[in-house]
Design a protein around this nucleic acid. Structure first.
Lengths: 196, 196
DNA sequence: GTCTATAGGACGATAGAC
DNA sequence: GTCTATCGTCCTATAGAC
């Protein structure tokens, strides 16, 4: 892992984030030391502090990046007009996006309690903004009579929990493609909010 | 927190488990020290080792107890005969049981990676046994034509993720009773697996 | 059963040389 | 920008007195 002394600012920065994401996801933030991260990158522990003021900022940066990427990817999408097609789009987007970055997904809800109160608040705001997009779809569908849910807020949380749960069991080498998984979940989501 | 020197084996044992459960849930296993647990109990750190061989056994004991209690509570139930009523019973049981012990629920899926491989395997076996009960209900319902799910294994995981997710947002002081929450979720579960 | 004391090591973060 | 060296603190777990 050792590396020759010298300047590598363009490489080291991203590598630190990469290694930290991997180690935090696999062992947990509190169980990972700055020395372990440095070793994975191939530098000494002190060198990390050229890139982050402290360990917690490293975690926060990874989580904020993940949430902002999620919101940006969602915003970049061309969204259909009717609520049913919109909900299908959201479902498929959510599953595909989350399965593409399992480590970031994992730490973003497992390590919330290791954030300072300020940082926690910032992440929660981003998470709320994302959830609100789903709730708005449900509200529109209820308004025009294509959905029937007793409580849009709870339905939102229930559906997101269900969809995000894919990350806990999906393995790319398994028997199902991402598209097949999307379709199976969409079938359940569609029916769960359908008019009786 | 200090306590007079002396024998308290009948009190200290349960208190250690109680304090550990609370601290592990609030801050995470790796972030909690034996000294902090001892301080919460009102003894010195060394005294803990009269009750547990090490920190990890303490965690494992809490998780195993939680899973065994879950299976026992489920087994003690009188289960209705038709799949639809059975599924409603499972849904309401799962929600009520989990909302009664949020800390144990929390650590039981957040701290899996802090278990040794052997202990992890034991907990996974118990978890699988519980999940299998739901899958059997779904299979029976599909067999007699009252449920329509494309994949019972995935539906099982999806429904459990949705139901367990209640623990992340429910607060007893909130606007809804446990019964109301059960009913809202049952409405979604019922429709999600219904025949089209 | 609990205490005090400690072994033996890892931690986060910083200072100063190059 | 990275290194080596280190400060001060905390950790798990054990030993031996009471």
């Amino acid at each position: 892992m050792a590396r020759t002394t010298g300047s590598h600012s363009d490489i080291t920065g991203p590598r630190i984030r990469e290694v930290a994401l991997d180690l935090f996801a696999r062992r947990g933030f509190a169980a990972v030391s700055m020395r372990q991260i440095a070793s994975g990158v191939g530098v000494q522990a002190g060198a990390l502090y050229n890139y982050t003021p402290d360990k917690q900022s490293l975690l926060f940066g990874l989580m904020r990046e993940h949430m902002e990427e999620l919101l940006a990817a969602r915003a970049a999408r061309e969204v259909p007009d009717d609520p049913l097609a919109e909900l299908e789009d959201f479902t498929r987007f959510h599953i595909a996006h989350h399965l593409e970055r399992p480590d970031a997904v994992f730490i973003s809800y497992m390590e919330l309690r290791n954030l300072s109160p300020e940082n926690f608040g910032l992440i929660e705001t981003l998470r709320r903004a994302y959830e609100d997009q789903l709730e708005e779809i449900l509200k529109r569908g209820v308004a025009v009579g294509v959905f029937d849910v007793p409580d849009t807020k709870i339905a939102t949380l229930a559906l997101i929990a269900m969809l995000t749960g894919v990350s806990t069991w999906y393995r790319p080498a398994g028997r199902l493609s991402v598209q097949q998984v999307e379709t199976i979940y969409w079938d359940m989501v569609r029916k769960a909010v359908a008019t009786a």
